[in-house]
Simulated assay, not measured.
Amino acid sequence: MAAGKNPRAGEQGSIEAGFRSVDGSRSRSRCSTKDSKAILEAQHNLCFQQIGNEMKADYEVYDATMIAHCMMQIKAKFDTDEGLNFIQQYYRNQGQKKFGDDGKDAVNKELRQMLLRDRFTPKFVKDKSASERKKAQSAMMLLAEKQFEKMIKGRLVFQGDGTREWLSREDTASPTALQEAITTTCVIDAHKGRDIMTMDVPNAFIQTYMPEAKEGEDRIYMKITAMMVQILIDMAPEYRKYVVLENENRAIYVRVLCAIYGMLQSSLLFYNQF
């Protein structure tokens, strides 16, 4: 397909653009001047910025127009006047200041989900060994605005960086596809016109149970602190008896029963289910 070289100005500030398809026929479409110029530019790039004649592809008018529209929509979505727009995560305090009541609701929803699914269970400090208490990592609550759904999402995260010193690479590494391999596969699929399906597994990690600790091994604990302690007590009053004071701050120790985001071994545990 080749884009018309001389778009003609139409009525009421519109542009009538001509396109030539691979069979030599011409087609015309009408849209606003601003949109048409952007689409013509994207279509021109599709036609002439290809590397190597052997990989050159011909686009029908409909395909090129649809691709150009997608290119412009993606650009408009992420390239704003303030710069590139990507998902920004915030710690709970920052997130609640930014998102207000929506942020508070997201925190409550995430904690309620963890409680209903029994992803962890509270334990008394006296029931843990000194080593288990030392290895317990803090819980973090992150908030982010999901761009397309326009909703605030809360995520309870295990602060896993502190566990690197006693976890081996074999315990944490999981087979992961290289970005180059994924891109190559996408290019081949696009060139051959294949239908592609993507699938998301909701809450994939927290549906993965932790293996039982062997004799002599430490169990994994997480320490919930700050305002999340009060939220947990409000949702599950039985948690009140597990509250301890550390440096004048309240905390609840919970035993982790399922893989939680942030744990270094979560990816491998999820992979081993299949």
Rank of each mutant, 00 (worst) to 15 (best):
residue 2 A to H: 14
residue 2 A to F: 14
residue 2 A to Y: 07
residue 3 A to S: 11
residue 5 K to I: 08
residue 6 N to H: 12
residue 10 G to E: 08
residue 10 G to W: 13
residue 15 I to H: 09
residue 17 A to N: 01
residue 19 F to Y: 07
residue 23 D to H: 04
residue 24 G to F: 12
residue 25 S to G: 07
residue 26 R to I: 09
residue 26 R to Q: 03
residue 28 R to F: 14
residue 28 R to E: 11
residue 29 S to A: 13
residue 29 S to P: 09
residue 29 S to F: 12
residue 34 K to A: 00
residue 38 A to V: 09
residue 39 I to C: 01
residue 44 H to V: 13
residue 45 N to S: 14
residue 46 L to W: 01
residue 51 I to K: 15
residue 53 N to C: 02
residue 58 D to C: 14
residue 60 E to W: 00
residue 60 E to I: 07
residue 61 V to C: 13
residue 63 D to C: 04
residue 64 A to L: 02
residue 65 T to F: 05
residue 66 M to Y: 03
residue 71 M to V: 11
residue 77 K to C: 02
residue 81 D to M: 07
residue 82 E to P: 01
residue 83 G to N: 12
residue 83 G to F: 09
residue 85 N to D: 13
residue 104 K to V: 05
residue 104 K to L: 06
residue 108 N to D: 12
residue 114 M to E: 00
residue 115 L to T: 06
residue 115 L to W: 06
residue 116 L to D: 14
residue 126 K to W: 06
residue 127 D to R: 01
residue 128 K to I: 09
residue 129 S to Q: 06
residue 135 K to M: 13
residue 136 A to Q: 12
residue 142 L to D: 00
residue 142 L to K: 03
residue 146 K to S: 08
residue 149 E to T: 08
residue 150 K to G: 05
residue 151 M to S: 15
residue 152 I to D: 00
residue 158 F to R: 04
residue 162 G to D: 15
residue 162 G to V: 04
residue 176 T to L: 13
residue 180 E to C: 14
residue 181 A to D: 15
residue 182 I to D: 01
residue 185 T to G: 12
residue 198 T to R: 09
residue 200 D to T: 10
residue 201 V to S: 02
residue 210 M to E: 05
residue 213 A to Q: 01
residue 213 A to L: 05
residue 216 G to M: 05
residue 218 D to E: 10
residue 222 M to W: 00
residue 225 T to L: 07
residue 229 V to E: 03
residue 230 Q to K: 11
residue 233 I to G: 00
residue 233 I to T: 11
residue 233 I to A: 04
residue 236 A to G: 04
residue 237 P to E: 08
residue 241 K to C: 07
residue 248 E to G: 00
residue 252 I to R: 04
residue 252 I to Y: 07
residue 255 R to E: 13
residue 256 V to L: 06
residue 259 A to Y: 05
residue 260 I to A: 10
residue 260 I to F: 06
residue 268 L to I: 13
residue 269 L to K: 05
residue 273 Q to V: 01
residue 274 F to R: 07
